[in-house]
Design a protein around this nucleic acid. Structure first.
Lengths: 157, 157
DNA sequence: CTAACCGCTTGCAATTTGCAACCAGAAGGG
DNA sequence: CCCTTCTGGTTGCAAATTGCAAGCGGTTAG
């Protein structure tokens, strides 16, 4: 059962963060989490996701202590799930504008956009290619940051 | 955040059971759950889902103590999410054939089938019409029971 | 009048979560 | 070499959540 694997407060959030932030290191993920995950929970979730075959844990050649977490094909195929989940949340729940705009963009693009995004994730996480600056993820991230900046200005002004 | 609302072991399962089994009473849901939810957990999840606006709690006119739980429009719009989630689980996780066949049928039908299913749920849960014997839910349930029976035979023989 | 059924609660043990502090090893700069 | 910073985590502990079994006041059918 899928819920048994992903149905806790953090597993999906960790996957989402790796997918959309592009971060692959433990400390980065710990800092990137806007929800504020605790270090022991992050460690246990990463281990669980690796055991479940959703992430790989690879040595970073640039630093003997660094570890890179990468998405597997199974995790990449969660893109449609996350897209639908995000669309539903944007429609029915009150969230921050930056999360909403990204979810709506991904939902509006539909399956063709999801496929492009998944191809990009495969190149980055499975083949080790650098993430393109003009790809789907870049668009989503730009929209995310615009909305976040707009919110900052609105709150300040 | 959607995960905060639905990201526990049982909330989505309760919704799925109401959606696909057609049961609306507490005792029925308690018995119908193949995963075996505890009565106190079911009670707390039903209360939470009602508070979140995903279920309504209505008196059953036929019995002063009976209560009917019905899906709201927000819950009905989770159909695409559950479809994608089920498709992913059928593809990547080992589950029982009866759950797999239903998930694959729903995924294969795509958005048009989802819409028909949602229209059916609206008629049943929002308008109070009886569930049609020739609808999407009937097809899904028939496939589910055929697979379950096949498994029973295979296990016995 | 009695037995079954209704939604749901209670008590309790076990597990999970969240928080803060901490760790050993590795790399970088002077 | 030495000190600081950074690496992926671990540890101890309190609080919250979960799971199990039994039970409860009221309702209904026979």
């Amino acid at each position: 059962m899928t819920v048994e694997l992903l149905g806790d407060r953090w597993s999906l959030i960790v996957l989402r963060d790796i997918m959309f932030s592009g971060k692959t290191h433990y400390r980065e993920l710990l800092a990137a989490s806007t929800e504020g995950i605790a270090s022991n929970i992050l460690a246990s979730r990463l281990a669980k996701l690796v055991a479940a075959g959703l992430l790989t844990r690879d040595d970073d050649p640039s630093h003997r202590q660094k570890v890179e977490y990468h998405l597997t094909e199974a995790a990449i195929q969660l893109v449609p799930v996350l897209a639908q989940l995000g669309a539903w949340g944007a429609r029915w729940l009150e969230t921050t504008p930056e999360l909403t705009v990204r979810a709506e963009l991904l939902a509006a693009g539909g399956p063709p956009l999801w496929e492009r995004f998944m191809a990009e994730l495969r190149a980055t996480h499975l083949a080790g290619a650098p993430t393109p600056a003009d790809g789907v993820l870049a668009d989503l991230t730009a929209a995310y940051h615009r909305a976040a900046a707009g919110r900052g200005r609105a709150a300040a002004g």
